[in-house]
Amino acid sequence: MITTIENIGKAFLSKILPLRGTLQFATRVFLNIFDRRTYNSASRMVFIHQFYFTSVQILPLFLFVAVIFGSLINGMAFQVVKNLGLSDYLGRLLMGFVVTELSPFVTVLLIALRSSSAINAEIAVMKVSRELNTLESFRIDLIHYLFIPRILNGMLSMVLLTSLFALVVLSIGLLVSSLVFGTSVDAYIDTLLHSADVLDIVILLIKCAAFGFFITLIPIRLGLNASQELTSIPVAVLNGMVKVFLAIVTIEALSSILRFI
């Protein structure tokens, strides 16, 4: 009996301790964001390169996905709304679901699949090949030079790409709306405006930033867990991606609670 309770306690602690470590690491990184020394020429260059790889390079694919998703979602939403005679709820559906839920979700999935995995592997490789030692020996702070540019890039990319996704989807919505309902541009915009809530937009932006923060911080943290062996790289990436997925679900749930309370 006592052994069982001990095992339960051990299992709980083994799960909770890494989480505590991650949260401590997150706090440290977050506080360093406001450190002036972070913003030097080297960090800026890393940020620009990271942003280029995360947001600009992906742009054609991202826009393509946004157009496809936008057409599908709008088509389905408009048909359902039309069939059920719920045209009055069109604005709420578009603003409440497509903009505030779907856009960040699709964006975070794309960024996580592409950039989080890359960051995870990159940090793990740097750890295995002792490149992190190089930076430390030259007194280059890992958080300032390596982590914060990546995390800021994640946050900014999430916000910008989500907004872009939402704009594309809403633009397609305008097109579908005029084709299905014969709605004018003004009427469509009025419908959206009526359902747009500044608080929802603020929560959306905070959610995007939180997504961006954690989907880059977790791969960095898990990448640092790699040992000196090459075989530890895939393990680190695998663990990192699983944790990224859990973080996405957690943030999504928390933001929903925040919105609907």
């Binding site: 990159e122 490789v125 740097m126 090949s129 002792r130 490149e131 030692n133 190089t134 930076l135 020996s137 030259f138 007194r139």
Partner: peptide, 17 residues
């Protein structure tokens, strides 16, 4: 000499990326 150290060593390789 940490503050002015310029180490040339295999332990501090070039950053590969």
């Amino acid at each position: 000499h940490k503050s002015h150290l310029g180490l040339v060593s295999l332990e501090v390789p070039l950053i590969s990326n």
